[in-house]
Design a binder for these strands. Sequence first.
DNA 1: GTCTATAAACTGATAGAC
DNA 2: GTCTATCAGTTTATAGAC
Lengths: 189, 189
Amino acid sequence: MPHPDTAERLLDHAQSLIQRRGYNAFSYKDLATAIGIRTASIHYHFPSKGDLGTALMQRYHAQLELELERIERTAKTQQQRLESFIKLYGKTEKQHAICLCGSLAADRETLSQPLQEAVDRYLKRSQEWVSQQIQRGIASGEFAARGEPRDLAATLISGLQGGLILARARSRPMLQVVERVFLQSLATD
Amino acid sequence: MPHPDTAERLLDHAQSLIQRRGYNAFSYKDLATAIGIRTASIHYHFPSKGDLGTALMQRYHAQLELELERIERTAKTQQQRLESFIKLYGKTEKQHAICLCGSLAADRETLSQPLQEAVDRYLKRSQEWVSQQIQRGIASGEFAARGEPRDLAATLISGLQGGLILARARSRPMLQVVERVFLQSLATD
DNA sequence: GTCTATAAACTGATAGAC
DNA sequence: GTCTATCAGTTTATAGAC
């Protein structure tokens, strides 16, 4: 079998298009052409575009949870965990893409309610995970407590989302810079 | 006269729609309905959608330059200047919108070349201005030199752009948080 | 400057055959 | 699961009258 099942391939292409062009700049026709079926066939897998978007965010979030588990399992220090988290965004930067979530969040008012909520949950979860890692680092003395962990976490997520947007517009890597500045603000000196 | 000229009104509505819904989610029909003319009439003012977008970025950038001049004229300390700069984004946050530039940058691959370049110039200019304020603050001893001014500036712009996206998705203010964390990283302690 | 009229292409979506 | 056929609505855009 040269290909995974059609639904997965549709999600793959849809995700790539949204991360490069935005939610309202891809169509069923784009997907149909890309994988070699007709637009009507896509409706068998995803009755509406909103359904496709929701399925996409569900998959994206599930992948995040797997990565977070892996990071908690493999990284030893809290700093390593944050670095591993930031590396997740690094893949996207190399593809000259932005976060699926950031792209959808930018077009927020055009999304169906369930899709909006899926985006919100992803960002909330990301922030809470980062916040927890910072808390632990402060508790163990690895990090300095220069602010509320949840505020620092929100600032990091913002920096990463915005960093991907800037990196592509300015044609130069941003995540390394964001990482350095952020970790410095946690350093014990 | 109850209204400014039609071209300006078209730009006003287009900007609002792009900042709330994204570049590919507004149409000439939306604008026509909003200001009470026909779609064909819009082409008199802006032959193509790309032309409208470019004119919009030109106006947006010109407004930025005016604001930067005002800030340099009125704010005394470098910290006050940075705070005033961040306040420019605060207006957008209150409207539950994102930066025009950030919205366009998110849909980057669908933009005409001139429009892409206009977006890039705006972000570059913003970063360079912030970088210069940080440099001055370091030179005068107002700020601690904990990193390259251009990196710190890029991090702030990223945080602001991403902060607007997060604020809307999470339904809570982000810019105040981003400001606090950022200024702390410049503090002399 | 704005209108009517019109165009060609695209949009997400449905019905029903295979 | 995928197809053909078809839909109604939308999109950006042009020609030419007023």
